[in-house]
Amino acid sequence: MSEESLIRLNDVHIAFREREVLTGISLDVRPGEIVTLIGPNGAGKTTLVRVVLGLQIPDSGDRTMKSGLRIGYMPQKLHVDESMPLSVKRFLSLTGQPEQQIMSALERTGVAHVMQSPVHTLSGGELQRTLLARALLHRPHLLVLDEPVQGVDVNGQKELYHLITELRNEQGCSVLMVSHDLHLVMASTDRVVCLNQHVCCSGHPHQVRQHPAYLKLFGGESEELAVYTHHHDHEHGVDGHVIHKHDKGSPHA
């Protein structure tokens, strides 16, 4: 794909019941980059994602995207009633993709073992990885991930962000994702857009963390949102079990 933007929003405005939700939003996502939207609750992040997906029509402003663009979407959450016996295999087959491709996507996101499991029995990490696998099935040029680590513990969050970066590198896709936690995504994003109804600031995560607009929004949290550099000799699997680094080649890794 060329270096032109995959998708671009220009001066987007949206109001609900006369309350401004998005004001003058301009945003673009270029090939191969990871862009992270951060902001407090009620900042308009999910509404902006809906505009990017074409699900929400702006009151004013423009949305343009590259011809033939394929978008893979991972929603913030998925609720499946326990009374509905929907297996992961059946859930992903609703995309119209063959079983072999579904298994391949689950393998790549580390949850091939849940193929036959009911969706409502999955752990938080397994569910998010299943939703990520679903987003990958059409080999998207752009992955749109709304709070991809929702309901996952801190160790699982770091693993998921690392996986997202690996997928970008392998598939050459771009990523637009929503996050509340700048300190966890700093190592996994190229550009941060800080949103609070309008774009407060944007740029490299280190620059944004020191920007007055960011500090005003997050206040005392700024000192806590440092780059996470803790190192240890183990990792945690999707189900929470400890994997020592020297065991990563074992069948249980």
Results as ranks from 00 to 15, higher is better:
residue 3 E to Y: 06
residue 7 I to W: 06
residue 11 D to V: 00
residue 12 V to F: 00
residue 12 V to P: 00
residue 14 I to R: 04
residue 25 I to L: 13
residue 28 D to Q: 15
residue 29 V to Y: 03
residue 31 P to Q: 08
residue 32 G to S: 14
residue 32 G to D: 13
residue 34 I to F: 11
residue 36 T to L: 02
residue 38 I to F: 09
residue 44 G to L: 05
residue 45 K to Y: 04
residue 48 L to W: 06
residue 51 V to Y: 07
residue 52 V to A: 01
residue 55 L to N: 00
residue 59 D to M: 02
residue 68 G to C: 13
residue 68 G to V: 14
residue 70 R to P: 05
residue 71 I to A: 05
residue 75 P to Q: 09
residue 80 V to K: 13
residue 81 D to H: 13
residue 84 M to P: 08
residue 86 L to K: 14
residue 89 K to S: 12
residue 89 K to W: 07
residue 90 R to T: 13
residue 95 T to M: 12
residue 95 T to D: 10
residue 96 G to V: 02
residue 98 P to I: 13
residue 102 I to V: 14
residue 103 M to W: 12
residue 107 E to H: 09
residue 109 T to V: 05
residue 114 V to F: 03
residue 115 M to H: 13
residue 116 Q to S: 12
residue 117 S to Y: 13
residue 118 P to D: 07
residue 121 T to I: 15
residue 122 L to I: 08
residue 123 S to N: 05
residue 124 G to T: 07
residue 126 E to M: 10
residue 127 L to F: 03
residue 127 L to A: 10
residue 128 Q to N: 09
residue 129 R to C: 06
residue 129 R to P: 02
residue 134 R to D: 00
residue 134 R to Q: 11
residue 134 R to E: 00
residue 136 L to N: 01
residue 137 L to R: 02
residue 139 R to L: 07
residue 142 L to G: 09
residue 146 D to S: 13
residue 148 P to R: 07
residue 149 V to R: 04
residue 151 G to R: 10
residue 153 D to H: 06
residue 158 K to V: 10
residue 160 L to R: 04
residue 177 M to Q: 12
residue 179 S to T: 02
residue 182 L to P: 01
residue 182 L to D: 07
residue 188 S to G: 11
residue 190 D to N: 10
residue 191 R to T: 08
residue 191 R to E: 02
residue 195 L to A: 06
residue 196 N to W: 08
residue 204 H to A: 15
residue 206 H to N: 04
residue 207 Q to G: 04
residue 207 Q to H: 12
residue 208 V to C: 01
residue 216 K to E: 14
residue 217 L to C: 05
residue 219 G to W: 08
residue 225 L to G: 06
residue 227 V to L: 14
residue 230 H to N: 05
residue 232 H to D: 09
residue 233 D to K: 12
residue 236 H to C: 03
residue 237 G to F: 06
residue 238 V to H: 04
residue 241 H to M: 09
residue 243 I to P: 01
residue 247 D to Y: 06
residue 252 H to Q: 12
